[in-house]
Simulated scan of single mutants.
Amino acid sequence: MKGKWRLLVSSLLMVGLLFMLAGCGGKGADKAAEKPKKIIVGTNATFPPFESQEKGELVGFDIDLIRAICEVQGYEVEIKHMGFEALIPAVQQGKIDAAISGMSITEERQKVVDFSDPYFNAGLIIAVRNDNTTINSTDDLRGKKLAAQTGTIGAAYCDRVKEQDPSTVVKHFKDIGEAFMELKKGGVDAVINDYPVTLNYILTTEDANIKMVGEVFSADDKYGIAVKKGNTELLNMINEGLKKIKENGTYDKIYQKYFQQ
């Protein structure tokens, strides 16, 4: 009889242990399943109000946008600051999963990366010093000294002007703020840059001594989020998230924060 009781107690203990292990395994599996996926996104934080650095923190329209997209889609996001020209190669090489940096969707870029649905309409504008009376439109740019940020459509436009008139001088800067500083000290006659960024610079910089002239051109310039060619899973995730934050009002709140204060 004692032997039977020992066998029964041992069996019950074994069953209890198995239930405990199963329960622990289930909780661990649930926690693993609940852990959100993570993507690494590159940006060039020298393009306010879209991206910049304040007290060591990345801030701006693009930063808030990608965080909102990832949050609504259940993803964690890590954002890395790097040179603008390094962004697309980093996406191609898998060093980052995506790039958001006021990046215009162009045919040339679409050959090497895939873009999300457009999230912002920009366009270019000419900036000159307040005392400049000779440049009033794109027709007046030939033969002048022009500046733009390296790798942007503003830089590409300056290069096209130089092709049309070789006497045109073009200076490229890694930071758009450096281009504006060159304009302020008289090193160039005009800066060609995205309209919202130029407007933000004039409104937020004391004694800027800079004005915008002419109409916004390249008005079909649209920003997109770049991902590696063929990464449809990530592209779909971003597009779905962008659609959701537009529908739930988050996009409008971010827009008003930076452009309708």
Rank of each mutant, 00 (worst) to 15 (best):
S104R: 08
R109P: 11
R109L: 13
Q110S: 15
Q110N: 14
F115D: 03
S116K: 03
F120S: 06
N121H: 11
N121W: 05
G123Q: 04
L124I: 02
I125F: 00
D131W: 08
D131A: 10
T133A: 05
T133Q: 11
I135G: 10
T138E: 14
D140P: 06
D140L: 08
K144R: 15
K145T: 12
K145H: 13
L146D: 05
A147E: 04
T152I: 05
I153F: 13
G154N: 05
D159P: 00
V161F: 10
D165S: 04
D165E: 04
S167A: 07
H172I: 00
H172C: 04
F173E: 02
K174T: 09
I176C: 02
G177W: 00
E182H: 01
L183S: 04
K185Q: 08
G186V: 04
G186Y: 08
V188S: 02
Y195S: 12
T198P: 13
N200P: 07
Y201N: 12
I202L: 13
I202A: 07
L203H: 14
T204R: 15
T205P: 08
E206V: 09
N209E: 12
N209M: 09
I210W: 01
M212S: 04
V213F: 05
G214A: 10
S218G: 00
A219N: 12
A219Y: 08
K222P: 13
Y223K: 13
Y223H: 14
A226P: 08
V227R: 07
K229D: 01
T232K: 15
E233Q: 14
E233M: 12
L234R: 09
L235I: 05
N236S: 13
N236W: 02
I238C: 11
E240M: 14
K243V: 01
K243I: 03
K243L: 07
